[in-house]
Simulated assay, not measured.
Amino acid sequence: MNELLAASFSELGLIQTKDHKEMIHQAEKLCPHHVSHYLGMDVHDCPTVSRDIDLPPNVVFTIEPGVYVPMDWPVKEFRGIGYRIEDDVATSPTGGIELLTAAVPRDPIEIQRLMGTAE
Rank of each mutant, 00 (worst) to 15 (best):
F78G: 02
F78S: 00
F78N: 01
F78L: 01
R79S: 07
R79I: 01
R79C: 06
I81F: 04
I81L: 09
I81E: 10
I81R: 06
G82W: 04
Y83D: 10
Y83T: 07
Y83A: 11
Y83C: 09
R84M: 08
R84A: 11
R84Q: 14
R84W: 14
E86I: 06
E86Q: 05
D87V: 05
D87K: 03
D87G: 07
D87N: 09
D88G: 10
D88N: 07
D88P: 05
D88W: 04
V89I: 07
A90G: 00
A90R: 00
T91A: 05
T91S: 00
T91C: 01
T91D: 03
S92L: 04
P93E: 14
P93D: 04
P93S: 12
P93C: 08
T94Y: 09
T94E: 12
G95R: 02
G95M: 02
G95P: 05
G95F: 01
G96E: 04
G96D: 02
I97R: 06
I97E: 07
I97T: 09
I97Y: 10
E98W: 15
E98S: 14
E98Y: 15
L99D: 15
L99N: 12
L100C: 07
T101P: 00
T101N: 03
T101D: 05
T101Q: 04
T101Y: 03
A102V: 04
A102N: 11
A103C: 13
A103P: 06
V104Y: 10
V104T: 12
V104I: 13
P105Q: 05
P105A: 01
P105K: 01
P105S: 06
R106W: 13
R106F: 13
R106I: 12
D107L: 01
D107G: 08
D107V: 04
D107R: 05
P108W: 03
P108H: 03
I109D: 09
I109K: 11
I109N: 10
E110A: 09
E110C: 04
E110W: 03
I111V: 06
I111N: 10
I111R: 03
Q112Y: 10
Q112M: 10
Q112L: 10
Q112C: 10
R113K: 07
R113M: 14
L114S: 15
L114I: 15
L114Y: 12
L114G: 13
M115I: 15
M115W: 12
G116I: 08
G116N: 15
G116R: 09
G116A: 13
T117M: 08
T117Y: 12
T117R: 10
T117I: 15
A118E: 14
A118Y: 07
A118D: 10
E119L: 12
E119K: 13
